[in-house]
Design a protein around this nucleic acid. Structure first.
Lengths: 1327, 341
DNA sequence: TTCTCTGTTAATGATATAAGTCCTAGGAAGGCT
DNA sequence: GAGTTTCCTAGGGACAATATCATTAACAGAGGA
C-alpha cells in the first residue's frame, strides 16, 4: 500500500474542522474562552481511537490562541509586559502579606496600566481588597463601601467588580461585632449585585469562613444550603447543629445534598469531583457512613483503653482512634506491645531517626490474614499518615532547629567544651548569632519601605544610601517568613550544597543565593496555605473526632483551590537578592574553632575563622564566585546524616498524592508542582494551560494518577545488607568508599619544563574530579539510604509529573524507582500478590534478565534461573560471606532482591503460594526503534525489535555487532589498519549503548565516548583507543543506518522538518527581527501534540543571561520571560528523539491507565514497565494493545498535517542564482515596491506585503479573495515556479539572491508494509 | 653576502598568514633595529646566537642578518606556506630553518637538547645574556596565551630562559602590549602587568598608529618614546595594530606559588579597598591581614593601585598565615555532575 | 504656566579576565587522475 | 575538465561568570519664554 493514499483522507477532515472552529471563536477573547466554545464541538472530533490528540491540537492551533510564537515585536512587548506583571504580582503579594497597603495600592496602579492584563486586573484588586479587610483597615461596612466605589470609579475606572469582590464585602460585613439589620441590609445588597448568581458569590471558600457560612445560612438565612460548595457544606451544617442542638433536625433535613445542577458556574465545586480519599463515593453518603462508624468508635475507644495496661499517653482523640483500630486487628503479642507504646504523634518528624521509636507498618500489614483486615489497616494508616504528611511538609525547618537546640543543651549539660563539638551545637550557635542580625535587618528594611527613613533627613554615608535603595528591592520579600525560619533555611541550604558545582570544598555562590531564596519562597508558599487555612477554619469546633474528617476534607478542597489560584513566582533576581542577604549575614556570624601550625614559630596556634568564605576562582579565564566551606567543617559534615536538610518536597509521600486534575494541581499537599517541568518555558505553559482548561488531556492525568497510586515500601532485607556494606566504609559495587580528604600531587620544581607543569595540573584536576565525583556519588547514595531508612516499614508513594516531552518522573528526586540499581533494589510494592504458576516463572525470567541474560527464549531464561537455584539460595542467605553469585549480575542489587524473593518462595511447600512484593520488569527491545519501526511500517526493522512474532527474541545489538564486524572485515581486506586492529574486538557490549542511544540522537562525539569506555578495557593508550573509537563509531552509525533504514528515513524527515521550521519566518514579523541585516531572528520553535493531546514545545532558545547585583557579588542569571530567537541547531537535533520520547511517554501513560483499570499495580521507568509477577502476562497484553492503539493511526501523516496547519503561511529564505528568470522577476517586484515606499525595500517589507496577500486570500469576502489572487508578491511569484530546487544555489557571494519562499515541509518517506496489528501475537515485544 | 630583502608587495603574495601580522616595510624595520642598539649588548657577534620564532615572511630576519651577521641565526617555523617560503628564500644562506612548531614545548627540547642543533650559552643571572637573543612574532590573537606563558617562563627560569636572562624582542598585538604595560592605578592594570613588572623590564619599542594606542599609559609613551609606524606597513592589515616589545628579564626571588595566588585573587577585585579584597583570600583573611598590616594607608588602597613590591609584601604575610587556605586547590571542575536524572 | 535645556543617575552594553588550543564542518584551492 | 583530496579557516562551543568601565536612556529640576 502506498502512503499517499492512506495519508490524504485525514487531512481533509482536519482542515474542515479547523474552518468550523475558527468561525466559532472570537479573536480577542482570552484563550480559555475560545476553548470553551470549542468544547461543544469536541464530540465529533474524537474519531481517532478515542485519544485526545484532535481536541487538543485544535485548541493549540485555534486563531485566538497564540501565546508566544507571534511576531517579534509583539512577542517582546507582551513578554516584557508579562514579566513586568509577574514582578508586580510578586511584589504586590509580598506587600500585602507584610501589610504595606500603600505600596500595594501603588503597585495596583501600575498593574492597572498594563493594557493586556486589564482583563484579569480584578483578581489582583480582589487580592488587595481581601488583605485590606483581613488586616482590619476597613473600619466599618460603610467605610469599605466608600473605598470600593472610590477605587473602582476613580482609580480603576475600566475595572468592574466580580462575585469574588462581593464575597469579600460580605465577609467584611460579617466581621462586625454584632450582626444587626444594617448588616443584613448590606449583605442583601451585595447579594443582589451578583454577576453570575448568588451561588457564585458563595462559592468563594477562600474568602468566606465557615463561621461566615454559618451566619449566612443559620442566622440570616439569606442563602440556601445547596449554594454552599460541597466540602464546606457538610462542615457548616454540622457546626450549626452543634451550636444549636434544638434546630439540628430541621437543618439536617434540608441538607441532603442531592442537587447536582450546580456545576454551571464554578467548575471547581462540581460535585462529581470527589475528594482524594473518598473516590467514587458520593460525598454525602460517605459522610454519613463515616459519622456512624467514627461515633461508634469513639465509644469503643473508651472501653477498650480501660483495659490496656501500659498505653503510652496519646493526646489527640484522632490518634487514639488510630491506635485503637490497630489494636483491634489480629496481631501477635509483640506487635501489640509495640503499638501500645508507640506515640502516634503526627508532629514527630519522620526524619528524626534517633527519636523515632519505629514501628514497622509493613510487617504488621503483611502479617494480616484477611483482605478485610488489610483494607481496614490501610484506611487507618492512611488517616494517620495524612497528619504525618502535613507535619512533614510543614514543620521541616522547626524540626531541624529543635534538634540543634536539643543537642546544644545536651552538650552544655555535659559541660562539653572540646573543640570538636558536634555539628548541631555549632549550628545552634550560628542560628542564635544570626537571628538578631536578621531581625535587625528586617526591621531596618521595614522602616525604609514605610518611608520612615529618608535619605535626606539623616546624614547617611554613601553606602547606607545604597543599602537603603537595595532594601527597597528586597525588603518586601524579607517580611514574609519568620526570621527564625529563614535562618534555619539558610543554614540547611548551605550545608546541603556542600561540594556541588565542581567546587572542591564549597559551592557556587550563584547557586547558593538562588537556592536559599527559593527555599524561602517555598517556605512562604506552604506557610501561606497553612495560615489561610487556620484563619478560615478558626471557628470550627475541632474537639470531636467526627468533625475532623469534615474539616480535613474541606481544608483539602480549600488547599487545592488555593494552589491553583497562585500564579506568582518570585523573579529569579529577587530570589538571588534575598538569598545573598541571608548568606552574607551567615558568613558574618558563623565561625569555627581552629588549630594550626604557625609557619614562622612552628607553634600550635588556636583561632577562630568564619565557617564560610566568599571568594572567586577562575575557569578558562572566566571568574566564578564561590562560597568556600571551612575544611574543619567539611570533615564534620562527612560524618553527619544530612537527611534533615532534605526538603520535604523532595521526599516520597506517606499518603496518596493529590490527583492531577489540572495543570498545576497535583502531587504534594502543601506545595505546588506543575504538571510539566519545563524549566521556565512560559511558552509551553501557555499551551498546557489552554489544553488543560479544555479538559483535553484527561488521559494524561489518569495515567499519572495510576503511577501515583502505586504504594511502595522499603525492602528491609536488602536495606540491611546495604547498610552493612555502607557502614564498612569500603567501596562496594557502585558505591565508592569513604575518602578522607583530597590529596593532590606536590608541584614540580619551578624550573621544570613547562610541559611538566602542564602534566601536573592536568593530573591534579583529574584527581580532584575523581574525588568530587566519588564524593557526590557517595553522598547521593547516602541520601538514598537515609531516606530509605526513614521510610523503613512505611507505606509511601511517588507523586509524578512530566518533563517537557511528556515523560513521567517522580517528584522526589533522591530516592525513587527511576534511580540506579541500588534504589531499585531497595523498593518493593506495598501490596503483595500470590505468585501462582505464571508469577513464579516470571520471577525467574526477571532474575535471568537482571543477569543480562535477556535475549533468549523464555524457556531458556527460566531454566537459567532453575539451574542456579543453589546459587540463589546461597546469595539470599549469605549475601556477603557466601559465593556472591548475585554480584555477577548486571544489576546486582535487584538481582539480590529477586534471589531473596525466590528463596523465600521456595521455602514454602508450594512456592506458588508465596505472596510476592517484588516488582517484575518488562523492557522493550530498544523501545525507540520499536516506535520508529511502527511509524515507518518497516518490516525488517520491526522484526529486529520484536514487533513481529517470532519464537526467539531478536537481539538487535548482536545483530549490529555482526554487521559492524562484516564492515571491518571488508575494510581490513582493503588494508585498513584500524579495521585490522578492531575486527576481532567487536562484541555486543561494545555497540550496545551506541545502538540504543543512536535512536535518541546521540552525537558523533557522544558515541565515540561511549565506545571508548568499552575499548579502554582493551587498549591502554587512551589516545589510541579514542582514535579507534572515533573510527568505530562511524561504522556503528553506518551499520545501524543500514539495518534500520526505514527508521532513519523517518528520523531524517523529522530532523529536516525541525530544521525548516526553526528557520522559518512568520508573516507578521516586523523589522526588529531583521535588525542584523538580512539575517532575521528566527522565532518559531517546533511544536506538536502527542497522541494523548499534550502539547509539546521544544524549549531550545538562545538564552540571554544578565548580571544581577546582589549583596555578595553579581550573579549571572537568565530571564525566562525574555523572547529569544530559537536555537535552530538544538531544535533540529532534539526533535527526532523528543518526538519518539513523546510517543513512548504516551504509550506509557496509556498503559498505565489501562493497567490501572484492570487493578494492576503499575510502575514505569520510561520504557521499562513494572508490575507484580503474577500480573505480568496481563500487563504484557495491555502493553501490546496500547501500542497498537497508539500506532493504528499514521502518526507521521498526522504530524505533517499538524505542521502544515500550524506553520501555514510561514516563509523561509532561499538563495537562487541572480541571473535566473525568477530572480529577475523578483528584483523587478522589489524595485517597484521600493518606488512605492520611497525607500529601498527590505525583506521585512516583502513579508508585510505577503501578509496582506494572505489576509486577503483568507478573507470571508469573495471580493477580497479575488484581490488577493490578483496580487503579485515576491512570494507569489515563487509559488508559480515548480523547479525551485534546481534554481537554488549555495553561493553566498554576489551571484546569489536571497529570496523568500513559502515554507514547505519535505515529503513523508513511503511507509512500509508492516501492520502494527501483527504485534498482538509477538510475545517478545516487551519481555 | 647580503640577503635579499623582499618588499610588502612581494611578500603579500604568500597565501596564508595564519592570523599573524608582520611589519613589511623595510624602512620601519631598519628604524627599529637602529633604535634597539643591540650591538651594545651583544659584543661578540661570532658567538651570538639568535632564535627567531614564527619568522613568517622573514623580512625582519633578512634585515637583521644583513645588519649583524650573528654567529648562528635559527628560525623555527612549521606553517606550510611560510616554511616553504623560507626554504626558497634562504636555501643558500647561513640562516637555519627548523620545521618545528614554536607552540610546542617539545620543539625546544628537540632543537636544543636532543639534536644539539642550537645550543645557547648559559649565563649567570646578574646580567642580560650577551650571547643569546630571542626574536618572536606572537601577533595572532589566538597566541596571546602563549605570550603570557612565555612571560611566566621568565619567572620560572625554564624554557629558553634557563640560559640566563635572555632578551626577547616580541611582536604582539597592541591590545596585549597595553595590558602588559599597565602601571599601578591605571585602567589596564592587571595580573599580567604585575607579572611583567615582577620578572622583566619591558619597553615598548614600536607600535602601529591605530587608535588603541591611546590606551597606553602616558608614562609609558613618555618613557619609551616608541616608533609609531603606519598600520599600512602591517600585513595583513586590519583595524587592530601590533607593537614590538623589548623584554629584558630581571632576577627575582619571589615565592611564586603564594605570590600567584595572592595577585590572582586580589586583582579580581581591582577597585575594592584592599582590606575588603583580602577577605577573598580565605577564611578570615580580613581579620588576619588587618592585624598584620600596620600601614592603614595601604589598606585603603585598591589592588589595582598596588605595586609589585606591595604584592610581595602581602605575599610574605600570606605565607606566614597559620590558617591560610590550600593554594593548590584553587581550581574548579565545572561540567561534572549537573545531571539531574 | 508650560516648555526646553542641562546635569544626574540608572540601566545597559562592552570588555577583560587565565593562560596550553577543543573540534569539526565547510569551502577553496591545488594537485592529481 | 571533472572529480577527489587536502588543507585552512571559521565558527561553534562551555570565557555554560563577574568586576569594572563606557555609553546610553531616563529623569528631574531649573530657568527662560
Amino acid at each position: 500500500m502506498l502512503r499517499s493514499f492512506s495519508r490524504s483522507a485525514c487531512r481533509v477532515t482536519a482542515i474542515q474542522r479547523r474552518f468550523i472552529t475558527s468561525k466559532g471563536s472570537k479573536l480577542l477573547k482570552p484563550a480559555s474562552d475560545t476553548h470553551m466554545s470549542m468544547e461543544s464541538s469536541q464530540n465529533s472530533l474524537g474519531a481517532h481511537g478515542g485519544l485526545d490528540f484532535m481536541k487538543s491540537s485544535q485548541i493549540s492551533m485555534s486563531p485566538g490562541f497564540d501565546p508566544y510564537d507571534m511576531s517579534h515585536a509583539s512577542a517582546v512587548k507582551s513578554m516584557t509586559q508579562s514579566r513586568d506583571v509577574m514582578q508586580l504580582w510578586s511584589l504586590l503579594e509580598a506587600c500585602l502579606y507584610s501589610k504595606y497597603m500603600k505600596r500595594a495600592f501603588s503597585i495596583l496602579q501600575s498593574l492597572y496600566l498594563v493594557g493586556p492584563h486589564r482583563h484579569y486586573f480584578i483578581d489582583d484588586y480582589n487580592m488587595y481588597l481581601a488583605s485590606y479587610v483581613e488586616n482590619g483597615f476597613a473600619k466599618s461596612i460603610a467605610d469599605l463601601d466608600r473605598k470600593l466605589s472610590d477605587d473602582l470609579q476613580n482609580s480603576f475606572p475600566a475595572c468592574e467588580y466580580n462575585d469574588k469582590t462581593l464575597s469579600i464585602m460580605i465577609h467584611n460585613a460579617l466581621r462586625s461585632e454584632e450582626v444587626n439589620d444594617s448588616v443584613l441590609r448590606s449583605i442583601n445588597t451585595y447579594l443582589k449585585m451578583n454577576m453570575k448568581g448568588i451561588k457564585s458569590i458563595i462559592s468563594h471558600v477562600d474568602v468566606l469562613t465557615v463561621r461566615d457560612y454559618e451566619i449566612l445560612l443559620g442566622e440570616l438565612k439569606v442563602i440556601k444550603s445547596s449554594d454552599i460548595p460541597d466540602a464546606t457544606r457538610v462542615l457548616v451544617e454540622k457546626n450549626i447543629s452543634a451550636r444549636q442542638p434544638a434546630s439540628a433536625d430541621e437543618e439536617g433535613q434540608e441538607s441532603p445534598v442531592l442537587n447536582r445542577t450546580n456545576t454551571l458556574n464554578d467548575k471547581r465545586s462540581a460535585p462529581s469531583r470527589v475528594e482524594d480519599l473518598t473516590k467514587g463515593i458520593e460525598p454525602a453518603k460517605m459522610a454519613e457512613l463515616e459519622v456512624e462508624s467514627s461515633i461508634s468508635l469513639d465509644e469503643a475507644v473508651q472501653s477498650l483503653e480501660k483495659d490496656a495496661a501500659k498505653l503510652t499517653a496519646v493526646d489527640t482523640l484522632g490518634m487514639r482512634v488510630v491506635r485503637h483500630t490497630l489494636l483491634g486487628l489480629d496481631l501477635n503479642e509483640k506487635q501489640r506491645e509495640k503499638i501500645a507504646q508507640f506515640h502516634f504523634k503526627a508532629e514527630e518528624n519522620l526524619l528524626n531517626l534517633d527519636q523515632k521509636s519505629s514501628i514497622d507498618f509493613f510487617e504488621i500489614y503483611r502479617s494480616l490474614k484477611s483482605d478485610a483486615e488489610r483494607a481496614k489497616f490501610d484506611e487507618i494508616l492512611e488517616s494517620f499518615n495524612q497528619e504525618r504528611q502535613k507535619a512533614l511538609e510543614n514543620r521541616a525547618t522547626d524540626a531541624a532547629k529543635e534538634r540543634w537546640k536539643h543537642d546544644f543543651e545536651e552538650a552544655r549539660a555535659r559541660g562539653d567544651i572540646s573543640i570538636e563539638k558536634r555539628l548541631n551545637v555549632k549550628l545552634w550557635k550560628w542560628y542564635n548569632a544570626m537571628l538578631p542580625l536578621l531581625k535587625e535587618e528586617v526591621k531596618n528594611s521595614a522602616e525604609v519601605m514605610s518611608g520612615k527613613v529618608k535619605n535626606s533627613t539623616k546624614r547617611l554615608s554613601q553606602e547606607e544610601i545604597k543599602q537603603n535603595r537595595a532594601r527597597l528591592d528586597y525588603g518586601p520579600y524579607l517580611q514574609l517568613v519568620e526570621p527564625e525560619k529563614m535562618c534555619v533555611i539558610t543554614i540547611l541550604e548551605l550545608l546541603k550544597l556542600n561540594s556541588t558545582g565542581g567546587v572542591i570544598e564549597g559551592m557556587r555562590t550563584a547557586r547558593a543565593v538562588i537556592s536559599v531564596g527559593k527555599a524561602i519562597e517555598m517556605e512562604f508558599r506552604s506557610e501561606q496555605l497553612l495560615k489561610n487555612e487556620s484563619q478560615l477554619f478558626k471557628d470550627v469546633n475541632k474537639k470531636s473526632h467526627e468533625f475532623k474528617k469534615y474539616v480535613q476534607r474541606a481544608k483539602s478542597k480549600f488547599r487545592s483551590y488555593k494552589i491553583e489560584e497562585s500564579k506568582v513566582v518570585w523573579p529569579q533576581a529577587a530570589r538571588a537578592k534575598i538569598g545573598s542577604i541571608m548568606i552574607s549575614m551567615l558568613i558574618h556570624v558563623a565561625k569555627v574553632d581552629l588549630e594550626g601550625i604557625d609557619p614562622v614559630t612552628k607553634q600550635k596556634v588556636y583561632g577562630e575563622a568564619p565557617a564560610f568564605s566568599h571568594g572567586y576562582q577562575y575557569h578558562n579565564g572566566s571568574k566564578l564566585g564561590v562560597l568556600k566551606i571551612h575544611r574543619s567543617l567539611i570533615q564534620q559534615l562527612n560524618g553527619e546524616r544530612l537527611i534533615a536538610s532534605v526538603q520535604p518536597q523532595l521526599l516520597p509521600m506517606l499518603v496518596k498524592p493529590r490527583d492531577w486534575k489540572n495543570w498545576k494541581s497535583g502531587g504534594y499537599y502543601y506545595n505546588q508542582s506543575s504538571l510539566i517541568r519545563s524549566k521556565d518555558s512560559p511558552e509551553q505553559m501557555a499551551y498546557l494551560k489552554a489544553v488543560s482548561d479544555a479538559n483535553a488531556i484527561d488521559t494524561v492525568y489518569k495515567g499519572l494518577n495510576v503511577l501515583g497510586e502505586t504504594a511502595w515500601t522499603v525492602n528491609r532485607k536488602v536495606f540491611n545488607i546495604m547498610s552493612e556494606v555502607w557502614n564498612s566504609g569500603k567501596d562496594f559495587l557502585d558505591i565508592p568508599g569513604i575518602q578522607e580528604k583530597l590529596e593532590l600531587l606536590p608541584p614540580p620544581p619551578r624550573d621544570a619544563d613547562p610541559s611538566v607543569h602542564r602534566e601536573w595540573k592536568l593530573k591534579n584536576k583529574e584527581l580532584a574530579n575523581k574525588f568530587s565525583s566519588n564524593r557526590s556519588i557517595r553522598c547521593d547514595s547516602n541520601y538514598k539510604l537515609e531516606i530509605a531508612r526513614a521510610f523503613l516499614g512505611e507505606k509511601f508513594y511517588f507523586p509524578h509529573n512530566l518533563d517537557f516531552r511528556g515523560r513521567a518522573y517522580p517528584l522526589s528526586p533522591h530516592f525513587n524507582h527511576l534511580g540506579n540499581d541500588m534504589s531499585r533494589g531497595l523498593l518493593i510494592f506495598w501490596k503483595g500478590k500470590r505468585l501462582g504458576p505464571q508469577g513464579l516463572t516470571w520471577l525467574k525470567v526477571h532474575l535471568s534478565n537482571l543477569f543480562g541474560f535477556d535475549k533468549a527464549p523464555l524457556v531458556e531464561r527460566i531454566s537459567f534461573a532453575e539451574s542456579h537455584l543453589e546459587d540463589i539460595r546461597d546469595s539470599a542467605e549469605n549475601p556477603l560471606n557466601g559465593k556472591g553469585w548475585w554480584l555477577k549480575a548486571d544489576k546486582p542489587w535487584q538481582a539480590l532482591a529477586t534471589c531473596i524473593e525466590l528463596n523465600e518462595a521456595y521455602k514454602l511447600e508450594n512456592p506458588e503460594d508465596f505472596i510476592s512484593h517484588q516488582p517484575v520488569h518488562q523492557d522493550g527491545t530498544c523501545n525507540g526503534l520499536q516506535h520508529y519501526a511502527a511509524l515507518g511500517g518497516d518490516i525488517e526493522g520491526a522484526t529486529q525489535v520484536n514487533l513481529i512474532p517470532n519464537d526467539r527474541p531478536q537481539d538487535v545489538y548482536s545483530h549490529v555487532a555482526k554487521l559492524v564486524q562484516a564492515r571491518l572485515e571488508a575494510a581490513a581486506a582493503k588494508g585498513d589498519e584500524q579495521a585490522k586492529v578492531l575486527r576481532d574486538k567487536i562484541t555486543r557490549k561494545v555497540v550496545k549503548q551506541t545502538v540504543m542511544t543512536n535512536v535518541y540522537g546521540v552525537t558523533y562525539v557522544g558515541a565515540t565516548l561511549q565506545i571508548e569506555k568499552q575499548l579502554s578495557n582493551i587498549f591502554d593508550d587512551r589516545k589510541y583507543s579514542l582514535e579507534l573509537s572515533k573510527y568505530l563509531a562511524k561504522h556503528v552509525f553506518a551499520a545501524v543506518r543500514e539495518l534500520f533504514h526505514g527508521a532513519h528515513l523517518i528520523q531524517d524527515w523529522l530532523a529536516e522538518c525541525a530544521n525548516r521550521i526553526s528557520k522559518s519566518i512568520r508573516l507578521d514579523v516586523d523589522e526588529k527581527s531583521f535588525k542584523n541585516g538580512n539575517k532575521p531572528d528566527f522565532m518559531s520553535s517546533v511544536i506538536w501534540t502527542t497522541p494523548l493531546g499534550l502539547p509539546i514545545v521544544q524549549p531550545y532558545r538562545e538564552a540571554t543571561k544578565k548580571q544581577v547585583t546582589t549583596n555578595l557579588q553579581t550573579v549571572f542569571i537568565s530571564d525566562p520571560f525574555s523572547v529569544n530567537p530559537v536555537n535552530a541547531r538544538r531544535q533540529k537535533a532534539g526533535f527526532p528523539p523528543n518526538f519518539i520520547h513523546s510517543l513512548d511517554a504516551s504509550h506509557m501513560l496509556l498503559s498505565a491507565a489501562a493497567c490501572g483499570d484492570q487493578g494492576l499495580t503499575f510502575a514505569s521507568v520510561h520504557d521499562s514497565y513494572w508490575t507484580h509477577a503474577c500480573d505480568v502476562d496481563l500487563m504484557n497484553s495491555s502493553l501490546r494493545e496500547q501500542f497498537i492503539k497508539l500506532h493504528e493511526v499514521d502518526l507521521i501523516e498526522r504530524l505533517k498535517n499538524e505542521f502544515d496547519e500550524r506553520y501555514k503561511n510561514y516563509v523561509q529564505i532561499a538563495r537562487i542564482d541572480r541571473r535566473s528568470v525568477l530572480a529577475r522577476r523578483i528584483i523587478d517586484i522589489r524595485s517597484k515596491l521600493s518606488k512605492e515606499l520611497g525607500r529601498p525595500a527590505t525583506l521585512a517589507d516583502e513579508i508585510y506585503m505577503e501578509k496582506k496577500r494572505s489576509q486577503l486570500l483568507e478573507s470571508q469576502s469573495l471580493e477580497d479573495q479575488e484581490k488577493g489572487k490578483q496580487m503579485v508578491t515576491t512570494v507569489s511569484v515563487v509559488e508559480t515556479i515548480s523547479n525551485l530546487k534546481e534554481l537554488e544555489t549555495k553561493k553566498t557571494d554576489g551571484s546569489a539572491l536571497m529570496i523568500l519562499v513559502p515554507m514547505k515541509l519535505p515529503e513523508i518517506p513511503p511507509k512500509g508494509n508492516f501492520d502494527v496489528q501483527d504485534l498482538r501475537n509477538s510475545r517478545y515485544f516487551f519481555s | 653576502m647580503s640577503l635579499a630583502v623582499r618588499d610588502l608587495k612581494t611578500l603579500s603574495k604568500i597565501k596564508h598568514y595564519y592570523g599573524f601580522k608582520y611589519v613589511l616595510n623595510p624602512a620601519v624595520n631598519e628604524a627599529i633595529l637602529e633604535k634597539l642598539q643591540l650591538e651594545k649588548t651583544y659584543g661578540n657577534r661570532a658567538r651570538w646566537k639568535v632564535l627567531d620564532l614564527y619568522p613568517g615572511p622573514s623580512q625582519q630576519a633578512a634585515l637583521f642578518y644583513n645588519r649583524y651577521k650573528p654567529g648562528q641565526y635559527a628560525m623555527m617555523e612549521s606553517r606550510p606556506d611560510f616554511f616553504q617560503h623560507l626554504s626558497q628564500e634562504f636555501a643558500e644562506s647561513p640562516l637555519e630553518i627548523y620545521n618545528k612548531d614554536p607552540y610546542e614545548w617539545s620543539s625546544y627540547v628537540d632543537l636544543i637538547d636532543r639534536s644539539q642543533a642550537f645550543v645557547p650559552e648559559k649565563q649567570s643571572l646578574d646580567h642580560i645574556n650577551d650571547k643569546f637573543l630571542c626574536l618572536a612574532n606572537l601577533t595572532s590573537t589566538g597566541h596571546e596565551g602563549l605570550l603570557m606563558q612565555w612571560y611566566a617562563c621568565i619567572g620560572n627560569r625554564n624554557w629558553i630562559q634557563r640560559f640566563g636572562r635572555v632578551k626577547m624582542l616580541l611582536w604582539v598585538p597592541t591590545t596585549a602590549a597595553i595590558k602588559l604595560l599597565g602601571v599601578p592605578g591605571s585602567l589596564s592594570r592587571s595580573k599580567c602587568s604585575v607579572v611583567r613588572e615582577a620578572f622583566t623590564e619591558t619597553k615598548l619599542v614600536a607600535t602601529s598608529d591605530t587608535k588603541e594606542i591611546k590606551q597606553f599609559d602616558s608614562s609609558v609613551m613618555h618613557a619609551n618614546n616608541p616608533i609609531i609606524f603606519s598600520n599600512k606597513d602591517v600585513w595583513p592589515s586590519r583595524e587592530k595594530g601590533i607593537s614590538l616589545l623589548e623584554v629584558d628579564p630581571k632576577a627575582h626571588d619571589i615565592d611564586l606559588d603564594n605570590w600567584e595566588y595572592v595577585t590572582k585573587h586580589l586583582l579580581i577585585l581591582k577597585k575594592t579597598p584592599l582590606l575588603e579584597a583580602l577577605d577573598s583570600l580565605g577564611h578570615g583573611g580580613k581579620d588576619y591581614f588587618k592585624s598584620k598590616i600596620e600601614d592603614k594607608e595601604l589598606l585603603r588602597k585598591t589592588p589595582g593601585e598596588l605595586t609589585n613590591d606591595e604584592f610581595i609584601y602581602i605575599t610574605g604575610l600570606f605565607a606566614n598565615w597559620p590558617f591560610k587556605p590550600d593554594i593548590y586547590m584553587d581550581f574548579v571542575d565545572i561540567y561534572q555532575e549537573e545531571s539531574i536524572m
